[in-house]
Design a protein around this nucleic acid. Structure first.
Lengths: 316, 316
DNA sequence: GGGCATATTGCTCATATGAGCAGGAGGGGC
DNA sequence: GCCCCTCCTGCTCATATGAGCAATATGCCC
């Protein structure tokens, strides 16, 4: 049975929010003092009967962001609303847009930005406005040029971001994963490659995304790994990959032999970074997001509401 | 491309509605004057970016009610919110509850209330509180006692409503539809039946629901009609039934021969009534609701938001 | 570039609202 | 039945907000 006050608070809420009446007017309609009306409305809000949503592709969820900052070690969290989103694509676009906004608003402006590559990062590059920053150099932090089927995507991403900021792009001229350890070591010690890696190590900020651990991963798409190899990694606890390296739910490398053959900055370099921005969205990436945030691989997370709630352990 | 003001209005809305900041505080955060913030918020509201919903089973939709009253000849409209409703059953329960509330609040209190029977009315009777009125006599306005499979539902409904109002119930001792015209005329002229019909004709208010025109109708359930007969009625334009009589989309009797054999008050008596309350909910009853409201068969409509919007021609 | 029409801004002032407090009603415990 | 404690009510007062208006900026035609 619903009590009288609750019912009255609903009647009051209808008149207040839907009919735009003042609390005083509502008072005379419901034969209550205006103070009682005010209290009923406060009660209705507190009980969660009044739901206020901001319906807009650019809307963020500040309370969720705050909770994320408070309950994790993140220095910042950007959470886009998933109200009214039909598909994952729309959600990813919103998240990429938010990441672009965050980059644009970033102070101090980073001199050098280290980036990974992939669908998400490419999306971010497209959402950045021309002139988003007055000069930022971009450097790739993991390999991936040659084998990429969607030719040049990795390079295009870096170049676009740099170009739009009137800066220079430095590409890492190497595959993401080498077949043999010796080859990797050889490439790594090559002067051109070593110079890029050095620049990457000294970047003032990092921006990267994560891949889910399954056959849809960009590393599979690009031909570096077979679906079977990924399935084996999953069996061994992989939840996803960042900068080409597969991690488990604790943020640890799953297969050190594979990792040795992966060219790019180390996870430890990300962990030590003052500013490492992870951009992650979509239901399939909840697990990898948890691993990244939980093990301190990023200092800033840009994500969607559902992922954020999954991290927070919300039931809804 | 989204313009700057729109984006600012979203940022302002986040701070105002989610972070409970004052417009002044928002002003200093966004580097705007507090008046600009106020205008941005007003703009966000006007553009529909701020959605305020009252989430409660007893919540009504006053703006929809007003539009219904204005665009139809109804003297009153009660529209329950369908936010957060999972199934039709929940919706019907909410609507029945609203009808019970409406009856309880009705002034002047009717001396005699003429009612039909059916699932909906039964539901209303259960939602009424004991002592909902200080004495109201209830009279059935259409037949339906004997054949009803759910034995005595029709009678129980009338008795419950009357009992809870400390009044007397008068049952109409007749089937809803007779097989032969002569039988119907004979019963109708029987003293006991005629007296009830006379009382029904003089009721100060009517309360009835409507059935959809398909095999799930209560008249089929009760055995008065076969699914085939209903199908034939549909073919001839029937959209539903009220007080046992099938009507088309104009509110006209579909089959006058069948109607002649139907015992109860005439549609014209409902149309002439000062107070005729129709209680209708569920997606399957949009058509019959339209017919009833459109042809003036009720003066008050109690319904759900979706049905109301269908009547108003809203797209959503 | 000048002048006009229109939109936008920053203000004053009236009003609506929430915080905090004093008095009073209700409801056990003895 | 009496008292005390708690919760609730209705108030005063400070603050937040929206309406309306003058001043200013913007765009547009010639």
């Amino acid at each position: 049975m619903i009590n009288t006050d609750e019912l009255m608070s609903i009647r009051a809420a209808e008149l207040y929010y839907e009919e735009n009446k003042t609390q005083d007017e509502i008072g005379s309609i419901l034969r209550l003092t205006r103070w009682k009306v005010g209290r009923l409305l406060a009660q209705a809000k507190a009980s969660g009967f009044i739901r206020i949503e901001i319906v807009h592709p650019r809307a963020r969820r500040l309370p969720v962001e705050r909770r994320l900052r408070e309950s994790t070690g993140l220095t910042d969290a950007i959470v886009v609303s998933s109200v009214g989103v039909a598909n994952d694509e729309e959600l990813q676009s919103r998240t990429a847009q938010a990441a672009a906004d965050y980059l644009t608003g970033l102070r101090p402006i980073p001199r050098t930005l280290g980036i990974s590559w992939g669908r998400t990062l490419h999306d971010v590059s497209l959402h950045l406005k021309h002139g988003w920053a007055p000069g930022v150099d971009v450097v790739q932090i993991n390999g991936g040029v040659s084998l990429n089927k969607r030719a040049g995507t990795a390079a295009t991403t870096a170049v676009t971001i740099a170009h739009k900021a009137f800066g220079a792009a430095t590409l890492l001229p190497s595959p993401a994963i080498l077949e043999r350890l010796e080859t990797k070591q050889a490439i790594e010690s090559d002067r051109a490659v070593a110079a890029v890696l050095e620049q990457a190590a000294g970047a003032s900020a990092y921006l990267y995304s994560a891949g889910q651990a399954d056959a849809h991963s960009a590393l599979v798409d690009s031909g570096y790994l077979s679906p079977d190899e990924v399935a084996e990694l999953v069996r061994r606890g992989a939840v996803g990959d960042i900068v080409g390296r597969y991690i488990d739910k604790n943020g640890d490398i799953v297969d050190s032999e594979l990792d040795e053959r992966t060219l790019g900055i180390q996870l430890e370099q990300l962990r030590r970074a003052t500013l490492a921005i992870a951009v992650i969205s979509g239901g399939a990436k909840h697990a990898v997001a948890r691993a990244i945030v939980g093990s301190g691989l990023c200092t800033v997370l840009v994500t969607d509401e559902d992922t954020a709630r999954a991290l927070l352990g919300d039931d809804v």
